[in-house]
Amino acid sequence: MLLRRYAEGKSESLNEVVALVYDELRQMAHQHLRRSQIGQHVDTTVLVHEAYEKLLQGKTQQLQDRRHFFAVASRAMRQIVVDMYRADRAAKRGGGAISVTLTGSQMLELDSPEQLVTVHQALETLAEHNRELVETLDMACFGGLSNEQIAELSDCNVRSVQRKLQRAQTWLTHFMSQA
């Protein structure tokens, strides 16, 4: 099986694995776009391709398992959204009020677009301290995974995912207030 082969570390499998979860990623992107108001002109597929390419660029990363894959993909999503926001802002320069709402099942609601950048930076800071917390939050808020799915991928129970999210959010707030 491909999954097993890639789990065993066969490098060419990464490409294939990404292709395999193409649909799932696409769905994530759909969900993502539906919930954010960013660039309604952007085709979902474009967004997915961006995520896909980002993953390939980060070849050095070792994808140990499915969870790792989703964590990477979710983080890529976040990066994509932030990039898109920045590009949009550069283009319009103080123009249209883009409202960004990232609503996964965890509902990380952003009330102003600038907040997206702030959140992004705070998450990067937090990642220096505890990568796992950020991954969990990414999967929930940017990957559109439910707590149950995250629990399944991480092989832990839902309650502990909730606690991780609580901690992540607390620290996120902390770092944002420090910014």
Binding site: S105, Q106, M107, L108, E109, L110, D111, S112, E114, Q115, T118, N147, Q162, L165, Q166, Q169, T170, L172, T173, M176, S177
Partner: peptide, 15 residues
């Protein structure tokens, strides 16, 4: 958790 996130946002003071 939904309310958690909202609370986080509400605590952000200097937006």
């Amino acid at each position: 958790i939904a309310r958690d996130a909202q609370a986080v946002i509400e605590n952000i003071d200097r937006l």
